[in-house]
Deep mutational scan, measured.
Amino acid sequence: NQESVVAAVLIPINTALTVGMMTTRVVSPTGAPAEDIPRLISMQVNQVVPMGTTLMPDMVKGYAP
């Protein structure tokens, strides 16, 4: 099972992602793949992402898996 990126903390809208904001988990439906964490760092979210929420590609500005 592939791990997806999950918010480790509450991420406010327009916040640039840091490694400490993200964790990985096997979830369904799958979100952004765990191996993309290095690409996701410094990208901004376009909505509030509550802690424990799977990071879906459409939540991150300019990100395409």
Rank of each mutant, 00 (worst) to 15 (best):
N1T: 13
N1C: 14
N1G: 15
Q2T: 12
Q2M: 12
Q2L: 12
E3S: 12
E3W: 13
E3A: 14
E3Q: 13
E3T: 08
S4F: 07
S4C: 08
S4W: 08
V5P: 00
V5D: 01
V5T: 00
V5R: 01
V6Y: 05
A7R: 02
A8V: 08
A8M: 08
V9N: 03
V9M: 12
V9I: 11
L10G: 05
L10F: 13
P12L: 09
I13Y: 12
I13V: 13
I13A: 14
I13S: 11
I13T: 11
N14E: 05
N14K: 04
N14R: 04
T15G: 06
T15Y: 07
A16K: 13
A16S: 13
A16N: 11
L17M: 04
T18I: 08
V19A: 15
M21Y: 05
M22N: 06
M22I: 09
M22W: 05
T23D: 09
T24N: 06
R25E: 08
R25W: 08
R25D: 08
R25S: 09
V26Q: 11
V26P: 00
V27R: 14
V27I: 05
V27Y: 05
V27F: 03
S28H: 14
S28N: 13
S28P: 01
P29L: 06
P29I: 05
T30L: 15
T30N: 14
T30C: 13
T30E: 12
A32T: 10
A32K: 02
A32Y: 14
A32R: 02
P33T: 00
A34C: 09
A34V: 07
A34N: 04
E35A: 14
E35D: 11
E35F: 14
D36Y: 03
D36H: 05
I37M: 11
P38M: 10
L40I: 05
L40V: 03
L40Q: 02
L40F: 02
I41A: 02
S42D: 12
S42W: 09
M43I: 06
M43K: 14
M43T: 05
Q44I: 15
Q44S: 10
Q44P: 03
V45H: 04
N46K: 10
N46D: 02
Q47R: 13
Q47T: 11
V48A: 13
V48Q: 13
V48F: 09
V49Q: 00
V49D: 02
P50E: 11
P50S: 09
P50W: 09
P50Y: 10
P50G: 06
M51K: 15
G52Q: 04
T53C: 13
T53M: 14
T54M: 05
T54W: 06
T54F: 06
M56S: 04
M56C: 07
P57H: 06
D58S: 15
M59T: 01
V60Q: 03
V60G: 00
V60E: 05
K61F: 12
K61I: 15
K61Y: 14
G62S: 04
G62N: 12
Y63I: 03
A64Q: 15
A64C: 15
P65A: 13
P65Y: 09
